[in-house]
Design a protein around this nucleic acid. Structure first.
Lengths: 344, 344
DNA sequence: TTCCCTTGAGAAAACCTTTTCCCAAACCAC
DNA sequence: GTGGTTTGGGAAAAGGTTTTCTCAAGGGAA
């Protein structure tokens, strides 16, 4: 019979401490610390001997102890309410990537839309002495269910509604919409329709406004944007509305869609009607959700919000705030980019 | 002119410490600590006075200091190489949810497929004295680009290839496949085809094997599974192969697909051929990727791997390992569930 | 030789909390 | 009164590191 103690994995062997390194090298902990950090004064020979000893013993300083002393934990909290992750994950990966190289780790805090959960996470972050917080959401026009306004640590908002006076980073939706519409115009398409999401989303209006602006600036007729849902189904319906009229003269020859799912619905519906994309009608989506954009037939041209860069910028912004460099409060808009495939 | 110091946000005011609470309550720090933790002996009146003082001052113990002493940081690392997130995010949310209630925070570590990045993150975790690590991937049959085999802390693998002798949690793919095929049989469909991904994926074989088993157990003809890509395009091609033959008698009346994208392609292709779903042919997908499953026409019946539960279980398993309870090493398979919509 | 300065390195405080041990006072029984 | 036991609470060490201060030895100049 095998005893539990025997079958259980043996972790044991606690990490080697600075004290042990110092003892092994025959110096005091103070000297050892200074040797490893390049501080203090000592003979090059002593310093090297200590370093070598540390290397041999596999010494790694205890971050907890360092943080306690330095009042800087080299960790930040990342709040999100987007479990679904289409927007969140690239953003989060961006934040993480920007920080890992600076030795900063990221706490993942999924707050759903639950204020209790939000409170719980924020308190945990504060207790763990994070240096700052990045707040992320799935909507640019909604607050997270937490109050971050009077924390004693800096907060950066990325892709979510910032508190007044705080630093916020969002994608430049108007610019993204311009990119799409101007691309159509450059290709000679002059009857551009816009099919987008529900009126309750701020970005719907931002993008629609930019759409109108570009057309007006070019002296073209401005169609009324079609507001609906963020779904393929709505794309189908919208095509029925736009292309239902008998006289083909009234048909648009370009459709700028509020997201890729709508665009997918539009493309499928057009094909079912025998209207060719891009020959007869160009289609551009928004979000550049690759898995969708690459599966449409033909592959979808789409506006990319550069969320990974947005995340990186947010991480860096937080870091400079943590370092005490004052940042201009307010919302900074980061440019989108158009990913041209074959649909428009 | 406004000085920088004036315009910069004022964070300041360091957190209140136990020492301050003790001073305010007129006791020693030792007594204060004991009062707040329900330890030691003192008059109920004293204990209450200290607690009240702490509450008034908004005292929150410094986790860093606690961790240093207790040799337990109440943090864990979550390694993932899935930036895309379809599988990872529910899993990660599950891990996080399971742990936040126990006061454990989660470090997000995106290691991509880069060993250097993996090394970096693992060392950071170790330095920060995490209590354990959850390793997560986008593939069940691949290792993360890190070596976690000789750490001094427990590791749980979820949805990725575990080291030998370690604790691993994966979805029961064979069971999931059975669910799908048996559902078809229950509905009286007896000519079931299987269209799935590339041979390089272990799950392709696991599921195909289960598919064959169920048919054999029921004395039915076993068609050769069609291996291809995880894409809509492959779904289209597969339909051409399956339904290209002239005599309709040879056609399947059910298609079990290896993922939802293939299923989507199959459904679209069938519709284009005038074959009705589910009247003529039933279709079931795998992954229950809601955004896809709900957008197919008709909505897609699909196998759900319960990734959020998987994450929760992984979190809890790690926790009990951290608490020193020995866990049976090896791979534990968690059941899938069939989400019935309209396609099959 | 005396004084001063530099060099190399150690002692100790600090960060904040927990826990063990200890002590004085009060209380009890005899 | 005496010996013993509670009772309430404090002193101090511990956890691992960084940093400031101190100090002895050695060197150079006068």
């Amino acid at each position: 019979m095998v005893s539990d103690a025997e079958s259980a994995p043996v972790f044991a062997k606690p990490p080697v401490t600075l004290r042990e390194v110092a003892a092994a090298a025959g110096v005091s902990v103070a000297t050892a610390s200074k040797a490893l950090n390049g501080q203090g004064r000592m003979t090059a020979e002593t310093r090297e001997r200590i370093r070598e000893t540390a290397r041999l013993l596999g010494f790694r300083p205890n971050s907890l102890a360092q943080s306690l002393l330095r009042k800087r934990s080299f960790t930040v909290g990342l709040l999100t309410n987007d479990t679904y992750g289409r927007f969140s994950l690239p953003l989060m990966a961006g934040v993480s990537d920007a920080l890992v190289d600076k030795g900063v780790s990221v706490f993942l805090c999924n707050v759903e839309d639950d204020p209790r959960l939000g409170q719980l996470h924020v308190e945990a972050m504060l207790d763990k002495r994070v240096d700052g917080i990045v707040a992320t959401g799935k909507r640019i026009d909604r607050h997270l269910p937490v109050d971050l306004s009077n924390l004693r640590i800096p907060v950066v908002y990325a892709f979510t509604q910032p508190d007044p006076g705080a630093v916020g980073l969002v994608s430049d939706d108007a610019g993204g919409a311009r990119l799409a519409v101007e691309h159509f115009l450059r290709l000679g398409r002059r009857r551009v329709a816009h099919v987008t999401g529900p009126a309750s989303f701020a970005v719907v209006h931002t993008r629609a406004e930019a759409y109108r602006d570009v057309l007006r600036e070019n002296g073209l007729a401005v169609g009324e944007p079609l507001l609906g849902a963020w779904s393929e189904g709505w794309g189908h319906e919208a095509v029925a509305k736009l292309f239902g009229r008998a006289n083909r003269e009234g048909w648009p020859n370009a459709v700028f869609c509020g997201n890729d799912q709508i665009a997918r619905g539009v493309i499928d519906a057009l094909r079912e009607r025998g209207i060719r994309v891009p020959d007869d009608v160009g289609v551009i989506g928004f979000d550049n959700w690759e898995i969708v954009a690459e599966a449409t037939r033909p592959p979808l041209t789409s506006v990319d919000m550069n969320l990974a860069s947005l995340g990186r910028e947010a991480g860096l912004a937080l870091l400079s705030l943590v370092d005490g460099q004052p940042a201009a409060p307010g919302i900074r808009k980061l440019p989108c980019r158009l990913v041209v495939r074959q649909s428009g």
